[in-house]
């Protein structure tokens, strides 16, 4: 599956492992939360990076103490209408300070890119070659937002507040 990262299609270097697959000697691997929790001591000392895949009902908190050892978190969207991953992403970024790659996988629509990006996702599993174009359009659709979120934009309230402060 191609990967849309920072707005460009890139090769995905990560190898997804099913829970029963053997762990290869090197190269980045992506494992389930359960496997990570069971084999974390071994995975941690591998010479290559490890990513963890969260199901839509896995909590961000379950990974909170391990984020220093994890280079990628993939959050699954079993259906585009299942919005739990948006909260998971914000918690990973804003509460637990995760700075690695945060990837949305599963069923996502191009019209969700903006919401996903605002919640902290920076990579997306996509199936459409026109994804970069759609991405650029989505990112340009709005100039300002009412809410503070994980993308660090100042909210409209904050912008108004600054203006008042500057005038005083």
């Amino acid at each position: 599956m191609p990967l849309l990262k920072d707005g460009r299609l890139v090769e995905d270097p990560w190898v997804p492992l099913a829970d029963e697959d053997p762990v290869p000697k090197d190269g980045p691997v992506l494992v389930s939360l359960a496997r990570w929790q069971a084999e974390r001591e071994i995975l941690r000392v591998r010479p290559a990076p490890v990513g963890v895949r969260l199901a839509s009902d896995d909590s961000a908190e379950a990974l909170a103490d391990d984020l220093a050892d994890v280079a990628l978190v993939a959050v699954d969207f079993p259906a585009f209408a299942d919005g739990r991953g948006y909260s998971t992403a914000r918690l990973l970024r804003e509460r637990y300070g995760f700075t690695g790659e945060l990837r949305a996988v599963g069923n996502i629509l191009r019209d969700q890119y903006l919401f996903l990006a605002r919640c902290g996702f920076d990579a997306f599993e996509v199936s459409d070659a026109r994804a970069p174009e759609a991405w650029r359009a989505a990112m340009a659709e709005f100039h300002n937002f009412y809410q503070p979120a994980a993308d660090g934009y100042a909210s409209i309230i904050a912008l108004r507040h600054r203006r008042v402060a500057a005038a005083e």
């Binding site: 919005g83 969700q112 919640c119 709005f142 809410q147 309230i157």
Partner: peptide, 14 residues
């Protein structure tokens, strides 16, 4: 109204 408009986290609620 403003805070909830296109809220990125709460646009796909149950």
């Amino acid at each position: 109204r403003q805070w909830s408009s296109l809220h990125p986290e709460f646009s796909f609620l149950p």
